[in-house]
Design a protein around this nucleic acid. Structure first.
Lengths: 146, 146
DNA sequence: CTGGGTGCAAACCATTTGCATCTAC
DNA sequence: GTAGATGCAAATGGTTTGCACCCAG
């Protein structure tokens, strides 16, 4: 968080390049959606992405947003988060792994990372005879009033 | 897990007593659902509870199962878990807190507890300026083949 | 030119709800 | 007796899909 906006353009180009290489057509709707994902700092849901896309191209459809999110998810380009209660929210992949703290009053998401917890998870799974394929750690909290 | 079946009956009675005290009517469908929850060792979803209930009383309805689950959840008598992909699954409250490891091949749920992780979560939230209201830690894994 | 991509509307699935009837207290 | 609970069917909300048209390569 609080990162300077220096690389979004090149990042966007990278994504398009990767997609084209994977044999996926770079269409107008996809270009717009990728642009939104590349620039946003939050974790928007499909409807929110659709709304932002509409401001650029009025003709885009919500189904295309959903289809694109599914496509990008399968390609590993984005992560889908099903936080409590609400619809799925998305985040571009590529950064290092992190977990989430969700502000239950605002819906804001704060990313954090704990190597110690990751390590403990591995130990627990191993003891139980399992290999972790992936995991989900979400803290739901309220800003402390001091 | 692997607990001897010594207390289910008294536990069931306890629940009914508590419900009655809370001014909630003990109806036939509710009695059946409480019985199912009190005896099961797994984490069934609403449809599964409905199916089990049907074998006892053919006239029970799925909506009543949903309504009862919501009621029990609000009373704190059960916990609702929204594991990846599937419908909500339920578990009677009352045991001590634990997290879950979900077998991605079978859907089986293994409960575990790590005080160390709980503690680390608290520290993280505090550093970020938050109080944790609740959290969700789910490990999705596959049985290790040795 | 042509197969993948799109918009639209309809379908889906888990869950909730309106309503007339029923029943626990 | 009566307010709360139930069953049924219809509504909801997020997401997916069928289909005819469209456009990127």
């Amino acid at each position: 968080m609080m990162k300077t906006a220096a690389k979004p353009v090149s990042k966007k180009t990278d994504y398009e390049k990767a997609l084209r290489k994977a044999g996926i057509r770079i269409t107008r709707p996809r270009k717009i959606i990728l642009g939104i994902l590349g620039e946003t700092e939050d974790h928007p849901d499909a409807l929110e992405i659709f709304r932002r896309a509409e401001t650029i191209d009025k003709s885009i459809s919500l189904s295309t947003v959903y289809r694109t999110m599914k496509l990008l998810e399968e390609m590993g380009a984005i992560h889908r988060h099903a936080f409590e209660g609400g619809p799925s929210r998305f985040e571009q992949a590529g950064g290092d792994h992190h977990d989430h703290l969700i502000d239950i009053d605002t819906g804001n998401v704060i990313e954090f990372r704990s190597d110690r917890i990751e390590q403990l998870q591995q130990e627990i799974a191993r003891q139980l005879g399992y290999d972790i394929v992936h995991h989900r750690l979400e803290l739901y909290g309220r800003r402390r009033k001091d």
